[in-house]
Simulated scan of single mutants.
Amino acid sequence: MDKKIKAMLDEEWDNEELFYNISDYCIDKEIKDGYEKLDENEKHFFAIGKLLMEVNNGGFDQYFLNTEGEYIRDTLHFLNLIGETEFSKLFSKAVNIFESDKTDDEKDDAFCELDDEFYELESSAYENLYDKCISYIKEQVK
């Protein structure tokens, strides 16, 4: 695991701050070096960070437009690996829409409904996601 991420784990941040600092670092590293140069843990944080960033900024439609679905499998894998269910269910629905034969207008309508569900998630769902991601990465350091 990258030394910078290990150093971040020693900082006095809550899990949300730590999640976003690691995620931002992985996103910046991907921009600089490419996705394939990220290690497995960096890919996990990149995938979840990218999902949250894109959907919070413009919805599932924006996520798939900007990523072209490139990180679908890694994102689903990591959500399942950490036992996260709420985001996993929504993202799985979004993937099914993205991969369907629906027209672009039909996909947009379906994504809008999912966006509403995503934005209505309780803050505890986000806290749970951050906690699970941080617990997972700390286990990897041991």
Rank of each mutant, 00 (worst) to 15 (best):
A94F: 11
D28Q: 11
I22K: 00
D105C: 03
S135M: 05
D116R: 13
T103V: 06
N128W: 04
W13C: 03
F118Q: 05
Q62N: 11
N41V: 02
D39S: 04
D14V: 02
I134N: 02
D33I: 03
D61A: 13
F60V: 08
K6S: 15
D14R: 04
G69S: 04
D74Y: 11
I97K: 10
K132R: 15
S123E: 14
F46Q: 01
D104N: 09
K93G: 03
F98P: 02
L114T: 06
W13V: 02
K3G: 03
E42H: 05
V55S: 05
Y63S: 04
F19M: 15
I27N: 06
M1G: 15
C112Y: 11
L51M: 12
C133M: 14
D33W: 03
F19I: 07
A125Y: 07
N96P: 04
E117P: 01
E42R: 07
E16T: 00
L121T: 09
L79I: 13
V141C: 00
M1R: 02
D101H: 13
E113F: 02
E17K: 09
E120G: 09
E30R: 06
G58M: 08
D61C: 01
E99K: 15
I48W: 02
D101C: 12
E30F: 01
N21G: 05
K3A: 09
S135G: 13
E12K: 14
F64V: 00
I82R: 04
N56W: 12
A7Y: 00
F64R: 01
Y130T: 02
V95E: 11
L121F: 15
K6V: 12
I137L: 09
F19V: 12
N56D: 14
E113T: 04
F118C: 10
E12Y: 10
K142T: 14
D28E: 15
Y119L: 11
V55I: 15
N21Y: 03
F111R: 08
E11F: 12
E86S: 15
L129F: 04
L51D: 01
W13L: 13
F19T: 08
N57W: 08
H44A: 11
A47I: 02
L38R: 03
D105Y: 13
C133T: 01
E120Y: 14
L9E: 00
T67F: 08
F111K: 12
K43T: 05
T85G: 04
E54P: 00
A94M: 07
D116H: 12
E42L: 05
K50M: 14
W13S: 03
E139M: 11
G34I: 07
A125W: 01
S92F: 10
I5H: 04
D2Y: 02
G83A: 10
Q140L: 10
E122S: 15
D108R: 13
I22D: 03
Q140E: 14
N15S: 06
K32P: 00
S135C: 07
C26I: 13
E86Q: 09
E12L: 11
E42Q: 14
D33K: 08
K29Q: 09
E99P: 02
L121D: 07
F19H: 10
K43D: 08
E120C: 11
Y136L: 05
D105T: 12
E86G: 05
E11S: 12
Y136F: 15
N15E: 14
D101P: 00
L121G: 13
S92P: 00
N56E: 12
D2T: 03
D28G: 06
Y25K: 08
L79A: 06
V55T: 09
K6W: 05
